[in-house]
């Protein structure tokens, strides 16, 4: 399980996503954006606290931003990250900060002929949970209590 999370982390913590940039960003843009995000995080601005990725939002920390900047400064490493960041995060429902909107809007114009890969965000997790009651194979969480293997309430 730990390794699965790590694998997702590779995509989620991709420096480009952390910085809210696309692989085409210049070196100076990387520095500027990083510097700005570090400042925003220092000021504890909520808008800087999360970022969008194709595998769900990530939590942005100064540490991650610094590491992202360092990774992108090294051309060899940057090339690898560019490959992993091929997916443009679809941030339709994510509240966007004014700063990155400029970049993504620019990108959006460029990528006009983009095709959608899979029906995105069709099944929100909440919706799925609502239907869970109908799923015959859903767990029976109270089984242990019901069958006398645990008392109902905890004495904590």
């Amino acid at each position: 399980m730990g390794r699965g999370d790590e694998a997702l982390g590779r995509i989620r913590d991709n420096p480009f996503y952390v910085l809210g940039l696309r692989p085409a960003a210049t070196r100076m843009e990387v520095e500027r954006e990083g510097q700005k995000l570090l400042g925003m995080l220092e000021l504890k601005l909520k808008s800087a606290g999360t970022y969008a990725t194709p595998v769900g939002p990530g939590e942005r920390t100064p540490d991650k931003v610094r590491r992202a900047m360092a990774e992108l400064r090294d051309p060899e490493k940057r090339l690898g990250h560019e490959l992993w960041a091929r997916l443009t995060p679809d941030s339709g429902e994510e509240p966007e900060r004014s700063g990155t909107r400029r970049v993504t809007a620019l990108e959006a114009a460029e990528l006009a002929e983009e095709a959608e890969l899979e029906a995105m965000a069709a099944e929100a997790a909440a919706e799925a949970r609502a239907r869970e009651g109908e799923n015959p194979l859903a767990p029976w969480p109270e089984a242990l209590q019901a069958l006398g293997w645990a008392a109902g309430r905890s004495a904590r």
Binding site: M28, E31, R32, Q35, G39, M40, L43, L45, G99
Partner: peptide, 19 residues
């Protein structure tokens, strides 16, 4: 104001952020 800006930078167009 609580400001964040680089005291020294190589960027010619750095951001100044404040709260």
């Amino acid at each position: 104001l609580w400001l964040q800006y680089p005291a020294m930078t190589s960027d010619l167009l750095p951001h100044v952020i404040g709260r």
